[in-house]
């Protein structure tokens, strides 16, 4: 199956790259909040998200800023597929702290709702009103071959025209994000293949 990467975004602890352009992020608050402000996004729910969902949200926002999906693709034909290493462990740990001590037992509902990794795909779908399939995979490390397979599996559904597909890892203060917008007929020549994904991940 021949698919193409129409847009991509790479976020690490100290850099943001969108479609080959390094984005300058003024440092004022937390790294993810600084990216949010630099990207001029207005979505108050962002601040209620856990860090994993924030990473997924930002990755998808930056990828989609250069694409007008409202005009290019019907929302029911867009899939969302994500993968990572630590699942929701970062938020699981935060939640555990709220129930660790019998004398200070106050389980936080707002923390609890993010103790599932696939909440990330839900947040992205809600934000963009996409209605195609969504999936979240957990694997040991970023694996371009599996990433390709996950994206290709979304396109086995003939109604799917595009897929917001991302590696979204956050644990213990470290973020590692690669988001892509994959289509059947990309407007550029960046084919979805192992070599290109390897290159983008190592930017």
């Amino acid at each position: 199956m021949k698919l193409g990467i129409e847009s991509y975004c790479r976020i690490t602890n100290n850099s943001v790259i969108v479609n080959d352009n390094s984005i300058e992020i003024p440092r004022e608050q937390s790294w993810l909040t600084d990216i949010y402000h630099a990207a001029k996004i207005s979505y108050p729910k962002f601040f209620k998200m856990d860090n994993l969902a924030k990473c997924g949200f930002l990755g998808s926002e930056l990828v989609l800023q250069s694409i007008d999906i409202d005009k290019t693709t019907p929302k029911e034909n867009i899939a969302v597929v994500c993968c990572n290493r630590s699942s929701s462990l970062d938020d699981d740990t935060a939640y555990q702290k709220t129930i660790q001590n019998n004398d200070d037992y106050f389980p936080s509902p707002a923390v609890f709702v993010y103790t599932l990794a696939n909440i990330v795909t839900g947040e992205i779908s809600i934000r963009n009103k996409t209605m195609g399939e969504s999936a979240f995979y957990v694997m040991e490390q970023f694996n371009p071959q599996k990433f390709c397979s996950f994206a290709e599996s979304a396109f086995l559904d003939s109604t799917i025209d595009a897929c917001i597909c991302g590696w979204v890892e956050f644990f213990d203060g470290n973020c590692d994000v690669l988001f892509t917008y994959i289509t059947r007929n990309p407007k550029n020549n960046k084919e979805l293949n192992i070599e290109n994904l390897h290159t983008l991940y190592n930017l």
């Binding site: 209620k48 106050f106 389980p107 936080s108 509902p109 707002a110 709702v113």
Partner: peptide
């Protein structure tokens, strides 16, 4: 979810 969080705030 905010309502549940407010309930926890009242208790805590």
């Amino acid at each position: 979810i905010d309502a549940l969080e407010l309930m926890m705030l009242m208790q805590k």
